[in-house]
Design a protein around this nucleic acid. Structure first.
Lengths: 92, 92
DNA sequence: TAGATATTTAGATAATTGTCTAAATAATAA
DNA sequence: TTATTATTTAGACAATTATCTAAATATCTA
């Protein structure tokens, strides 16, 4: 999973809002859906893109699938940005 | 200029490489072009997207237009990412 | 088992995007 | 001015994407 996927995932406002909502803790697809005016299929599409980008994890619990934030990729991106600013500890 | 434009700008590998190249200092479009195998028109398109996203600045000097990194937007993005991680000083 | 609920997958469509060629603009040099 | 160099803009085209409807899968409950 490279930056390509991550930035594409982050470039959609619905997906950024999903990440914001998940700050509060794990939520099911149905919980998340209440915050949007789109079909479940569309939301599911966004969730799969976020998952492929490594930005969220999912875990089924019975009928529900709970999604959680995964901030590892965000750390990688921030390190890359710091390196652009000439502030990355890992190089130079 | 919102995150929408910024993340879209960052989601293309050519544009991320342009930013990397500009770490070394200002470069003209022609300087940058040497590092890619695309037409000047295509590169110009990428530069305009980066500029619209606030990620680079440009300044004409005679025949040349020099591009420089602008890291302000990167700071904004990093703050947003820190807030996702629950580490933003500006809130909570 | 059958039925209900939660979620995803498949397939279609309109909008966006990255690239190209050709033409236009800007600045310099002869 | 004319020609040359540097860069952008315009227009076209193929690939990608966000959304939808309809159907499929997974789980629970009666």
């Amino acid at each position: 999973m490279g930056f390509q996927e991550s930035f594409k995932a982050l470039s959609d406002p619905t997906r950024r809002e999903i990440l914001n909502l998940l700050r509060a803790g794990p939520m099911s697809a149905g919980d998340l859906l209440k915050h949007f005016s789109m079909t479940g299929a569309s939301l599911s599409h966004h969730l799969s893109i976020l998952k492929n980008a490594g930005l969220i994890d999912d875990e089924r619990q019975g009928k529900y699938i709970f999604y959680t934030l995964n901030t590892t990729v965000l750390d990688d991106i921030m390190n890359w940005m710091l390196s652009l600013k000439g502030e990355n500890r890992d190089e130079e």
